[in-house]
């Protein structure tokens, strides 16, 4: 059981930043929690004795974070897992939503474009969060940066679809059977990866993002109503799912 320690806002912020920094540096979850627990205890006892946070971590939080990070091994397994989850998540989401809308057809430019987006997005997320955790405590700057990072894949997707309309590259069309086979393989991959990574996050996210659209399409509702309802169900569902996850994590 974890009891909350009395900590100043400044120390709390530092602890959160350190957690993000170590996580985006690819360190192991258990080890991060370990060192964070120790530091929390230290900071809380130091504060009780009237010491400032500078006395504990020095003048530069960034230098201190780096120092801690250097002593921790990179957890390539978890890193690889997260990257696989992101890439396959994005691809299977694309395949499923296309499949529910009809048969599949992809151009060479689309396929390479999507791959490039996945790679860029992963790099930006890890670098970006690491950077955000070390800059000054201004929440506005942080908010803007996070907004830009989350908007990036959307912009890149739009860019790729625009380019795809402008430049024609060899395109593979799948007929009904072909589409079903691709869909089946993707489904197997998603299930396989979920079992391997021991998480249901991928399946639930994909279901929440694709199924409402599909089922609402079958109803006689107006197009606008469908759009709004599908967004509400998707994002509401994801919010509830994340809430349940964090509740479960806390009760551990």
């Amino acid at each position: 059981m974890k009891r909350e320690l009395p900590l100043s806002k400044k120390s709390q912020n530092f602890i959160e930043d350190l957690r993000i920094y170590l996580f985006s540096s690819g360190k192991q979850w258990d080890e991060i929690e370990d060192v964070i627990n120790e530091l929390e205890i230290h900071l809380s006892e130091a504060e009780k004795n009237g010491k400032s946070i500078e006395k504990i971590i020095g003048k530069s939080p960034k230098d201190y974070m780096e120092m801690v990070s250097n002593e921790m091994p990179i957890d390539y397994r978890t890193l690889f897992k997260s990257i696989c989850l992101i890439i396959f998540g994005a691809f299977s989401f694309k395949v499923f939503s296309d499949l529910l809308a009809g048969t599949l057809s992809y151009s060479l430019l689309e396929v390479t474009g999507y791959l490039a987006i996945a790679v860029i997005f992963i790099a930006v997320v890890f670098k970006g969060f690491k950077y955000i955790s070390t800059i000054s405590q201004s929440n506005i700057i942080r908010g803007v940066l996070i907004f830009v990072i989350s908007l990036l894949p959307l912009l890149l997707f739009l860019g790729v679809s625009y380019l795809d309309k402008m430049i024609s590259t060899p395109t593979i069309h799948f007929d009904n059977i072909g589409s079903f086979i691709i869909g089946g393989i993707t489904l197997l991959f998603v299930i396989g990866i979920s079992i391997w990574a021991k998480t249901g996050v991928l399946i639930i996210m994909i279901a929440l993002l694709t199924l409402p659209d599909y089922f609402l399409n079958l109803t006689a509702l107006q197009y606008e109503t469908q759009l709004i309802l599908s967004m509400l169900i998707s994002f509401g569902g994801i919010a509830i799912y994340l809430l349940i996850l964090s509740k479960l994590e806390k009760s551990k």
Partner: peptide
């Protein structure tokens, strides 16, 4: 010295 340096 900064106390936190003992943890690394």
């Amino acid at each position: 010295f900064s106390e936190g340096t003992i943890y690394p």
